[in-house]
Design a binder for these strands. Structure first.
Lengths: 224, 224
DNA sequence: GTCTATAGGTGGATAGAC
DNA sequence: GTCTATCCACCTATAGAC
């Protein structure tokens, strides 16, 4: 019923898989269900992707690479427009914007994948998580680097933690689109991407530029 | 080899289950593996819990109830010590402190459960998620209520979103203890609960008290 | 490339002895 | 309450026809 742009079986399988993975989880989505959803036969997954794991990898690879390229491109634009020291908000928007856009996209496949990605970061399946981490490594390094120059008052450890908290806020938001809508008994306006992005960036900018935690000087371990 | 305090089979099953659930996920943890780990026979789960789902519910119920009671008790203490308007940091610490303590507990069972809980919030299994949400409902309501009095400049919608972001940061932290340790090529000191809690509370306090997002007045949908 | 049929394995649940 | 043996539904993967 949906106007699918999928032309070949391979793409159809990828789209069916990301839909079912998002809805029921990877482990609970059988190849039978996926191929049925894609209108293909059970053997097609093994033909096109070698195995179920091959399919999983392909589902993630297809969307992650462009997403992270977009993030890096936006980061570069921040750096260009403001020589040397870019605006914190600009950098944060480059990090979370593309994911939120994907979560609110009109194409259902994008929305499904966003949800899938949001929760896969902490997924128990080591292999799945490592796919994400590999794809994310460059983004993490480059953004950390730039954030360190904008927030020079933060120690490396402090920055590491704040980055971690930030990823959590983003991932939970992206993962929870449907849950969110159900929780607030009013409805959540997922069409207002800009408003949502603004709220998240605003939240994170304040958090990231909080004064360093040096209050009750931590009991310093005497490292020789 | 671990000094288990479990005396009866039922408890032993619960502990084995939370260990395996945390490590491999619920769907990928078979009753066979769980009963083997617990040193019991395959039929024991069905005898004690009726089904695998019964076991899952029991695993969550056992730890969530005390955890959330602790949160509410700490919140009450914030309210008592400061008549009317408690400190933001105090309230945030009441929310995230107990979870972080659990994540860093010396008892492995607590740590496993923390990890499990952190990721179950966004789990695709509807039933699992609804267990968590049911247990969390009162906490969410009471904390939201108190936060609204501390941060009166926030609209209901804005507060809702910030609460959501906050839960994300907490959940990701609690879920990712092992992942975190591996990501930073240096080691992460999970023994320093207080330092971690301080960093998270500090981060969240700044984020929550950020000025409201009213910059580019959102395109107001004309609702008749 | 696409399909059917099936092999070979593992899952949750249960029956019935002890 | 605990255990073994077993049922049967379902899974992934493959063989081989078309």
């Amino acid at each position: 019923m949906t106007i699918s742009t999928a032309t070949d079986t391979k793409t159809e399988l990828l789209e069916a898989a990301e839909r079912l993975f998002a809805e029921h989880g990877i482990a609970r989505s059988s190849l039978r269900a996926i191929t049925r959803e894609a209108g293909a036969n059970v053997a097609s997954v093994n033909y096109h992707f070698g195995s179920k794991e091959g399919l999983v990898r392909a589902v993630f690879a297809r969307r992650l690479e462009p997403l992270n390229r977009e993030r890096l491109a936006l980061l570069d634009r921040c750096l260009e427009s403001a020589k040397g020291k870019p605006e914190l908000e600009c950098v944060l928007r480059a990090l979370v914007g593309p994911a939120l856009l994907m979560m609110c996209d009109h194409e259902p496949g994008h929305r499904c994948f966003a949800e899938l990605m949001g929760r896969a970061i902490t997924a128990p399946e080591t292999r799945v998580r490592s796919i994400l981490l590999d794809e994310f490594r460059e983004v993490k390094e480059r953004f950390t680097e730039v954030l360190a120059t904008i927030l020079p008052h933060l120690s490396q450890e402090e920055l590491f933690w704040r980055f971690h908290f930030m990823i959590g806020a983003m991932a939970h938001t992206v993962a929870g689109s449907f849950f969110v809508a159900k929780q607030s008994d009013g409805e959540v306006d997922t069409s207002d991407v800009e408003g949502m992005t603004l709220k998240l960036v605003n939240f994170l900018a304040a958090a990231m530029s909080a004064p360093s935690t040096n209050g009750p000087r931590k009991t310093r371990k005497r490292k020789k």
